[in-house]
Structure formats: C-alpha cells, structure tokens
Design a protein around this nucleic acid. Sequence first.
DNA 1: TTATTTATGTTGTATATACAACGAAAGGAA
DNA 2: TTCCTTTCGTTGTATATACAACATAAATAA
Lengths: 214, 214
Amino acid sequence: MYNPYLCPLFKHIPKDALDEVCLCLHTYEKQYQKNEAILHTGDEILAVGIVMKGCVHIMKQDLSGNQIMMASLSINHMLGEAFAFARVRLEVDIIASQSTTILWIPVNNLIHNSPERCPYYDQLIQNMLTIMANKNLYLSTKIEHLSKRTMKDKVLSYLIQQAKDANSSTFDIPFNRQELADYLCVDRSALSYVLAQLQKEGLILYHKNSFTLC
Amino acid sequence: MYNPYLCPLFKHIPKDALDEVCLCLHTYEKQYQKNEAILHTGDEILAVGIVMKGCVHIMKQDLSGNQIMMASLSINHMLGEAFAFARVRLEVDIIASQSTTILWIPVNNLIHNSPERCPYYDQLIQNMLTIMANKNLYLSTKIEHLSKRTMKDKVLSYLIQQAKDANSSTFDIPFNRQELADYLCVDRSALSYVLAQLQKEGLILYHKNSFTLC
DNA sequence: TTATTTATGTTGTATATACAACGAAAGGAA
DNA sequence: TTCCTTTCGTTGTATATACAACATAAATAA
C-alpha cells in the first residue's frame, strides 16, 4: 500500500492531518497503463504529480529523431514541478514505464495559498524547496555520468552510483538495455558490447537488469 | 552599478523595502579575485550567494583527475542553494572566473523565518522556488548538449542555445577554449579542430569567444 | 623592446563507438 | 505446441575523438 508519509512533500506533516491537507489542496489520483503518455511536450502544467505507484520516464526528442531519457522517477518522486514553477510549457514527454498511479496537486493551490487557508502550508513549501534541491543534485549526478569520455566510464559511473543508492554491491536498475542506453545517451548495441567487456574483465556481473559490482 | 531589483530573488519586492529586507536577512558582500576559490568541495553551506559582479564557474573533479564545468553563473545568478536546501556538503568547487562580488545570505534566515519577522518573506520563498526551477531547466539544457553523440552536434546544440539566449545570431560566450571544452566535456584540441571544421563548412564564424551562426 | 607565459590551432595515431545487419533468446498470444 | 514480438548480444566497418606532441599567436611581464 502507498504510504504518503514517506513522500518528501508530506514530510513533517502529522499523519492525521494528511487527509485535510490533500482535501484543501484538491489533490486527485489517476491511473496510467504501461507505455501510456502522462504528459506531452507543449502541455501547460496545471498540476504537479507524485508517483504513488509504478515508475515514469522523462523523455526528450531532439530534432534529429534521437530520444534521450532525462530522468527515471520511481515511487514518491515528483514530476512537472520545474516547468510549473518556472511557468513554461513542458519540454519533455512523460511516459508511464509500467502500470502507474499519479497523485496530482493543482499548482495554483501550491503557489497562491497560506497557512490560514491550508494547514501546514509553510511546511509544504519548505518541503518543495528540499525536493527541488534534491532534483537539482540528481540532474548534476546525471551530468557527471555523461561527462565521462568513454562509454566504459559512463557505465561504471552510473553503476557505482546505483550501488551507493542501493547500499549494496548487488542491485537492480530500473532500465532495460535500450532504456539504459537512452539514459546514458549511447548506442544500445555498443552498450551491450561494453557491458560484456566489463564482465569479461571481471569488473561487473549482470543478468538482465540485475547487476553486481566486483 | 549593481541593480538588486533585477535579481530574481528580489522580484516583486518594492525598491524601498530592499534595504530593510537585506538588513533583516543579515546579508553581506564579499569580493574575490580572478581564479580565487569561493567555496571548496566538502564545505558546509551556511549561506547562499548571489553574483553581484563578475562570473563564477562551478567545477567538479572526478577521481581520474578530469575536471568538468557543471555550470557558469553570471550576474544575478544564485549559487550553493541546491546543497543548502538539500542539507548536504558541497560536492563542487566554486571559482571566480574574473573579479567577482558575491552577496551572501545566511541560509537559516531564509529557511526559519516568517513574514512577521522579515517583510516580504513569503515573496522571497516564492522567488526561491522559481530560481530553483529555472536552475533545474538550465541543468536539463546542459544534459541535452551532452546527450549529442558527436562533438559537432554538442557544439552546435550549445551555440544554438546561446544564440537563443542572446536573441541574436552573433554573441559572446563566457568561456575560453579550455573552459568550453570543460563545459562540453570534450578534449580541448579536438574542440579546436571541430570548430575549425564548422567554420570551413560555413556553419559558423568565430573569433576568440565571439561567435556567429550562419 | 625582449622574454615569458598563456591561449589557441594543427597534425598523427590508436582507440572507441555509432551504425547497420544479423542472430539468438525470451516472452506472450493463439 | 507454433507463431510472433520484443529484448539482448555479436560482428564488421567507417568515422570520430582522445591523447600526445608540437606550432603559432596573443597577452603579459621585465
């Protein structure tokens, strides 16, 4: 079951106040099937979303048809907030990578509000600042992966970070091969080759999306 | 002269209230020479900064000695806010790329505060949300540049964005060759070669850090 | 001025990877 | 089962680029 208390947006808000807060914010839930588009490039962002179940991929197409994955957001992560608060239209496509449930929060209720009208409003805004700061660091980490000169180093940089996040040298990644290639901005078949090499060299072990660092 | 009213943090705050706001926030200014380190990796962030004069580079060293430029921040941009609000230590080095003045704002005065204690406090927080959203989009743009498979496409992606920002097909970039190479995460001499090729092909004209798209 | 340092451009070579084409394996549906 | 689709791995080739070494130009200091 989904536990909203684990969501960074609702941190430090008492459990018994959550219903009232959500009611006041006029939040609503919506479900999406695997591969269904949640939001499209050009959309106006009227609500920010929180992944309650499933996983979404933030995809960007460039003019030459290549598509890259900007981010992969698992449970409790927020989507659309950067475009909402910068007041610009969406420049990415947001896709459900599996059966997914999103909690939507109308932006106006987050921006033009006050503690008098919604309880714990100050705490919500503080939490929003923390969330956006952390997304900032997430994007910086991705830049670090992409900054590596060789694919081998890109892959290792990514896998080492995943191992850190999982706090274990064995971990699952949220990508299949094509998705990992899109995330690291490299060719899929070349990625397969490099992964095989890394395994031959004894640096990693892998099967499907399960990896072990040696 | 520096005009604080143009700074995104002080947007929608009346000019005649600015002094009081700064006094209440306990802001202070500090000057830095060219190439001087403003903050180091590992530093605890007690204050966020605003570039009042000059320009700073956000640099990151990886284990193998390569250094990359995460961002280049010109006048009115904010620095350190992601690490401050995520409450983690600095993971980058922040360097003055020229003679620079920073306006420092102690973080605690930005976080634990209220409109009763500081005027326009709500507006400041709203502005912080917008600033962090925009930095998010800035990092996304950089990821887009780095996502290109060839150096030629990386360079063009960057130059086209710079032309858009400058609203002109002729513009200056804030980098010398080595800095541009660090920003695009490529080898400097190879970059020189690609720039020369692009000029031969008639796609661009350049002299030093002044560029024209054709 | 000259000397020195820094920034930029050029070339050669070895390596890495994009891209295309194909094959094998796995999974799902009928 | 068979058929079909999707995913993943492999190989060959042409190209791009990292890296090193050096040359030239520009800026700065003496």
